[in-house]
Write a protein that binds this DNA or RNA. Structure first.
Length: 889
RNA sequence: GCCCGGGUGGCGGAACUGGUAGACGCGCAGGACUUAAAAUCCUGUUGCCAGUAAUGGCAGUAUCGGUUCGAUUCCGAUCCCGGGCACCA
C-alpha cells in the first residue's frame, strides 16, 4: 500500500482520543519526582474564519516541544482553550441576531475539529473558555480582589483594602472617597478613546488596530473603570531583566512603560485674578535647562487655567479650550506639526533667575502626562522652539554641545574651590570674541535657527555653568529640594488600564450603584454574575452598553430594601486572557481560581508561543495580574512566562500578508486533504526559523510530502505491505551508527536550545534518509530510533510505522533516543589547504590527525607547491579537522 | 525624528566560539524507466573566463573602508528593507 495520509491520520487521531494519550494526570496522581514542563500557545479567538496556517505554525512548534518533553520524561502540561469574549462575535450577532454564545460554540467546534485534524496532542479535559460562567466567575473574582486592594508604596506591593490606614478626622464621606481613590480598580472621569461605530471606548493599545480597520476614534470625557497598572510600572520594567524573552519584545514593553527620570519644579504664578502668588508644578526631564525656561505651557484641561486667566484673555482661552476638546485623536495627530496656543495673561516666576515669564495654554501639552504643565526651554526643545518662534518668545541658550566646550570655556580656577567655571554670552571680559563657532552657535540658537536638544555643558546658568548635563541635573535638583522649589521624580508613559467597554459580549462587572452615587461591590459568593438575555445586541450609542436597556437585570433591590442599579459596562477581551494560563492548571476547581500548591508546581509557563502583536496588550496585562495575585499571596510566582517566543507570520505565496481581499489565503483543511497533517506540520517547521515571516509555498509542501513518501517506501514494501526486506534484525553497521548518532545529536540539540530552528532538524532527517537509501541492508534498530526522532514532528506516520515494524501502539510513551558523542564523530574529515587564505586543495584526512601530519600533507600537495613555488614561507597556521593556511610573502 | 531587528544563488534558507560560503528543500536543465504521461530514480545547478573534458583561474554574503594569516561572522561609515514609538516635556 502506498503512503495513505488520510487513513493513517484518521486512525491515529482516533487512537489518541480514545486512549486519552495526552491527558495530563490530576495533581494527586502525578509523579512529582519528575520534572515538569508547561508549554503553552496563546489561545485563539474562535473566529468564523476558522484556523489559519499561521495558527498552525506556532501550535506545531509547541506540540513538537510537548511531545519531545514527554519522551524525555517530563510531566507535560500542554492545554488549549478559547479567548471567547470579543467584538467580532458580537458584531455578527448584531448583523444576524444569532446569540454570541451560540455563534461562539459553533466556531469553537470548528476550531477544535481543525486542531485535532493536525494531530495536536492537547489535553482537552483542561479546555478553558473565557465566556463560560465557571471561568468568568474567577475573572470577576480577580476584579473584586483588585477593587478590594490598594497599593502600599512603602512595601511596594498590593494589600487588602482593610489594611489601608485612614487618616484621622475624616467624615464618612471623606473616608469613602479616600478609600475609593486607593483601589486598584476604580472609576475615573476623564478623556477616553471613544469609537462611535463600535459604540465603545478602547484602551490605548487597541486604538491603532481599530483605526486600521477603518473605524474612527475620538476623545470624549466619560466615567470609566480603570485598573491601576501604573503602580506596577517599575516592577514591570525591572523584572523584564529576568525573563528569557526576545529582546525586541522587552524593548517594546520598555518603551510602552516609558520610564523617565526628571524633576517637579514649582513656579510661582502672578495673575490679576489671584490676590496672592499661586503655585504651578511642572515636570521636566531637563531640570538643568531651568535658566533657559522663558515661558510655561499648560494643558487646556488643566484645572488651574480658569483661576489664572485674565479677563482680557478669557474669551480667547475659552474658545481654544472648546476647540481642542472637540479635536479627535486623529486630528491631533494630523495637526501635530502646527502648534497653537493662547496666552493666559498670567505670568510665572522662574525660580532660578527670578524672571517673569508668560503662561500659555496649548494642546501639545497633555493633561494625562506628568503634571499637565511644562516649563518651555525653546533653545533646547524642538516643540518649545517652534512655539516660541510662533509667539515671539525669547530664546535663551543654556546648553552647548561638547565640541564647542573647548572654544567656549575659559578655565578659571577660583582660588578657593578650584571649580571649573564656564562663561557664556555677555562675559566678554574674558575674551570670547575669538571663538567664532561659539558666537555663531549662540546667535543661531537665539534666532531660532538651530535647536540643540542633546546633552552638553551648561552656560548662562549661574551656579550650573560649566557642568555637564548629567552633573547639572543632579546639582539643580539638589538646589530645588534644598529651597523647597521642587524635587526629583519619575514619570511613566504607561497609563492606567481602561477596563470597561460599552458592549454586551464580555464579563459583567460585579458592581452596584446606589441612588446616592456610591459604589458597592458584590460579595465573593454573589458571583458569577451572568449576562442577561437581550433581544438587541446593538450598543445604545449614547455611551451605554446594551445591558442598560434590560431593566429587570439592571434594577435590583437588596433584602433590606435598598435600590441599586447594576454596572452596565462589561470587561475588555483582554481580561480573561490575563489569567487563563492559571486556570489550565486547575480547571475544575469550584472553590478557587487555581489551587496554590498546583500553581507552585506548574508555573511558570516554560515556553509560551504566540504572535508579536500581543507584546504590549496581553503580555503586559498578564504580567500585571500575576504580580497582583502574587502580592496577595494567591500565587507563588510573580512572572507568568519564563520563556516567550514570537512566531513570524506565514505570508501568502506572493510574499505578502494573507488576506481574503487579496485572495491569497491558504486553508489548512485543503492542505491536509492534499498532503496530510504530517506534511503540513513538517513543512511549517521547514520553511525557516520560527520567528521570521516567510511565504507559503505549495510546491514546497509537495516536496515535504515527497520526503514522507521516501521515508515510507524505505521501510514499507508497497507491493507486499510488509516491512522492506532490506531491513533486518541485526546490529547496525558502523556507518549507520555514525549517521544515526549525528542525527540524534542534531535534533536533540535543536529541541533543547530553545531557538526553535526546527528547519535544520528536518534537514538532518532528510540527510539521514538520503544516506540510508544508499545502503544495501538496514538494521531495524536504526529505523526504530529514527522513527522516534521523527515522531514529535510527524506523529501520525511515525505511529503507523512504529506499529507496523512490530511495536505496540503508542510511540509517544517511548523514551527519546540517546546519542553517544564518540559515534557522532566522523572517521575522516575534509581539510582545506590554503595559501594566503585562498583554498587550493581539499583532502580527506583521518579525524584528529595531528598538526604535524597536516602540515606535511600541505607541503607535499602539488597544488599547494605550485602556489608557494619561489616564495618564502612566513608561517603555517594549522587548525585540527579544519584547515591549514600557508602564509607566503 | 527616535529606538530595535535584518540584507547570503532564480526562491525558502544553512554555516559551531573568526577557519572549506551556499547544507537541506523548492524551482530549473539533462538523463533513465514508460507506447506516452504521471510517479520514481540518477546527474548538474552562485556568476564570469579558459578548456572537447576531467579541471583550472578570478570575483562573490547590500556598499565602502578597517582589524586579522584568514571575516557572512568583529569594528567604523553609508544605502535599503521590516518592526515599534511618536507633541510623553
Amino acid at each position: 500500500m502506498k503512503y495513505n495520509h488520510i487513513e493513517i491520520e484518521k486512525k491515529w487521531q482516533r487512537y489518541w482520543k480514545e486512549n486519552k494519550t495526552f491527558r495530563t494526570p490530576e495533581f494527586d496522581e502525578l509523579d512529582l519526582t519528575k520534572p515538569k514542563y508547561y508549554v503553552l500557545d496563546m489561545f485563539p479567538y474562535p473566529s468564523g474564519d476558522g484556523l489559519h496556517v499561521g495558527h498552525a505554525e506556532g501550535y506545531t512548534a509547541t506540540d513538537i516541544i510537548a511531545r519531545y518533553k514527554r519522551m524525555r520524561g517530563f510531566n507535560v502540561l500542554h492545554p488549549m482553550g478559547w479567548d471567547a469574549f470579543g467584538l467580532p462575535t458580537e458584531q455578527f450577532a448584531i448583523k444576524t441576531g444569532i446569540h454570541p454564545k451560540i455563534r461562539t460554540e459553533e466556531c469553537i467546534a470548528r476550531f477544535k475539529q481543525q486542531l485535532n485534524s493536525i494531530g495536536f496532542g492537547y489535553d482537552w479535559e483542561r479546555e478553558v473558555n473565557t465566556s463560560d460562567k465557571d471561568f468568568f466567575r474567577w475573572t470577576q473574582w480577580i476584579f473584586l480582589k483588585l477593587f478590594n486592594s490598594y497599593y502600599d508604596i512603602e512595601e511596594d506591593k498590593a494589600k487588602p483594602i482593610e489594611d489601608l490606614k485612614i487618616p484621622d478626622g475624616l467624615s464618612d464621606e471623606q473616608i469613602y472617597n479616600f478609600i475609593n481613590n486607593q483601589r486598584l480598580a476604580y472609576l475615573a472621569d476623564g478623556p477616553v478613546n471613544w469609537c462611535p461605530e463600535l459604540g465603545t471606548v478602547l484602551a490605548n493599545e487597541e486604538v491603532a488596530e481599530q483605526i486600521e480597520k477603518g473605524f474612527t476614534v475620538v476623545r470624549k470625557n466619560m466615567k470609566q473603570w480603570k485598573l491601576r497598572i501604573t503602580s506596577y510600572a517599575d516592577r514591570l520594567l525591572n523584572d523584564l531583566n529576568n525573563l528569557d524573552w526576545p529582546d525586541n519584545i522587552k524593548e517594546i514593553q520598555k518603551n510602552w512603560i516609558g520610564r523617565s527620570e526628571g524633576a517637579i519644579i514649582k513656579f510661582k504664578i502672578k495673575s490679576e485674578k489671584l490676590s496672592e502668588l499661586g503655585v504651578i508644578e511642572v515636570f521636566t526631564t531637563r531640570p538643568d535647562t531651568l535658566f533657559g525656561a522663558t515661558f510655561l505651557v499648560i494643558a487646556p484641561e488643566h484645572p488651574v487655567v480658569k483661576n489664572i486667566t485674565s479677563d482680557e484673555n478669557k474669551s480667547e482661552i475659552e474658545k481654544y479650550i472648546d476647540e481642542s476638546s472637540k479635536k479627535s485623536e486623529l486630528e491631533r495627530i494630523e495637526l501635530n506639526k502646527i502648534k497653537s496656543g493662547v496666552f493666559t495673561g498670567a505670568f510665572a516666576i522662574n525660580p532660578a533667575n527670578g524672571k517673569e515669564i508668560p503662561i500659555y495654554i496649548s494642546d501639545y501639552v497633555l493633561m494625562s502626562y506628568g503634571t499637565g504643565s511644562i516649563m518651555s526651554v525653546p533653545g533646547h526643545d524642538e516643540r518649545d522652539m517652534e512655539f516660541a518662534k510662533k509667539y515671539n518668545i525669547d530664546i535663551e541658550p543654556v546648553v552647548i554641545p561638547e565640541d564647542l566646550k573647548d572654544s567656549a570655556i575659559r578655565k578659571l580656577k577660583t582660588e578657593e574651590s578650584g571649580e571649573l567655571i564656564l562663561t557664556g554670552r555677555g562675559l566678554k571680559t574674558i575674551g570670547f570674541e575669538d571663538s567664532f563657532e561659539y558666537k555663531d552657535y549662540i546667535r543661531k540658537v537665539t534666532d531660532g535657527e538651530i535647536c540643540y536638544y542633546k546633552e552638553g555643558y551648561a552656560i548662562n546658568s549661574g551656579f550650573l555653568n560649566g557642568l555637564a548635563t548629567k552633573e547639572a541635573k543632579v546639582k539643580v535638583t539638589e538646589w530645588l529640594s534644598d529651597n523647597n522649589l521642587g524635587y526629583k521624580t519619575i514619570n511613566y508613559r504607561l497609563r492606567d488600564w481602561l477596563f470597561s467597554r460599552q458592549r454586551f459580549w464580555g464579563e459583567p462587572f460585579p458592581i452596584l450603584h446606589s441612588n446616592d452615587g456610591k459604589i458597592k461591590a458584590l460579595l465573593y459568593d454573589e458571583i458569577p454574575l451572568e449576562l442577561p438575555e437581550v433581544e438587541n445586541y446593538k450598543p445604545s450609542g449614547t455611551g451605554e452598553s446594551p445591558l442598560a436597556n434590560i431593566s429587570d437585570w439592571v434594577n435590583i433591590e437588596s433584602p433590606s430594601g435598598i435600590k441599586y442599579k447594576r454596572e452596565t459596562n462589561t470587561m475588555p477581551q483582554l481580561a480573561g486572557s490575563s489569567w487563563y494560563f492559571l486556570r489550565y492548571i486547575d480547571p475544575g476547581n469550584k472553590n478557587n481560581f487555581c489551587d496554590i500548591e498546583k500553581e507552585k508546581y506548574w508555573m511558570p509557563v516554560d515556553t509560551y508561543i504566540g504572535g508579536a502583536e500581543h507584546s504590549v496588550g496581553h503580555l503586559l496585562y498578564a504580567r500585571f495580574w500575576m504580580k497582583f495575585l502574587f502580592d496577595l499571596g494567591l500565587v507563588t510566582h510573580n512572572e507568568p512566562f519564563r520563556k516567550l517566543f514570537n512566531q513570524g507570520m506565514v505570508l501568502g505565496e506572493d510574499g505578502v500578508k494573507m488576506s481574503k481581499s487579496r485572495g491569497n489565503v491558504v486553508n489548512p483543511e485543503d492542505v491536509i486533504k492534499d498532503f496530510g497533517a504530517d506534511s503540513l506540520r513538517l513543512f511549517e517547521m521547514f520553511m525557516g526559523p520560527l520567528e521570521t515571516s516567510k511565504p507559503w509555498s505549495t510546491e514546497g509542501i509537495a516536496g515535504m510530502n515527497r520526503f514522507l513518501n521516501r521515508v515510507w517506501r524505505l521501510i514499507i514494501d508497497e507491493d507486499s505491505d510488509n516491512i522492506n526486506t532490506k531491513i533486518i534484525d541485526v546490529d547496525p553497521s558502523e556507518k549507520e551508527t555514525r549517521i544515526l548518532h549525528r542525527t540524534i545529536k542534531k535534533i536533540t540539540n535543536d529541541l533543547d536550545d530553545g531557538d526553535m530552528k526546527f528547519n535544520t532538524s528536518i534537514a538532518q532527517m532528510m540527510i539521514f534518509i538520503n544516506e540510508l537509501y544508499k545502503m544495501e541492508t538496514l538494521s531495524k534498530k536504526t529505523i526504530q530510533d529514527f522513527i522516534l526522532l521523527l515522531s514529535p514532528f510527524a506523529p501520525h506516520i511515525s505511529e503507523e510505522i512504529w506499529f507496523r515494524i512490530g511495536n505496540p501502539a503508542g510511540i509517544s510513551d517511548q523514551s527519546w533516543p540517546k546519542f553517544i558523542d564518540e559515534f557522532t564523530k566522523q572517521e575522516t574529515v575534509t581539510v582545506a589547504f590554503s595559501v594566503n587564505g585562498k583554498v587550493r586543495a581539499k583532502i580527506e584526512m583521518d579525524f584528529d590527525a595531528d598538526e604535524k601530519s597536516l602540515e606535511q600533507t600541505a607541503l607535499d600537495n602539488e597544488s599547494i607547491k605550485k602556489h608557494i613555488y619561489g616564495k618564502n614561507i612566513k608561517k603555517i597556521i594549522t587548525v585540527r579537522n579544519k584547515m591549514v593556511n600557508v602564509v607566503v610573502s
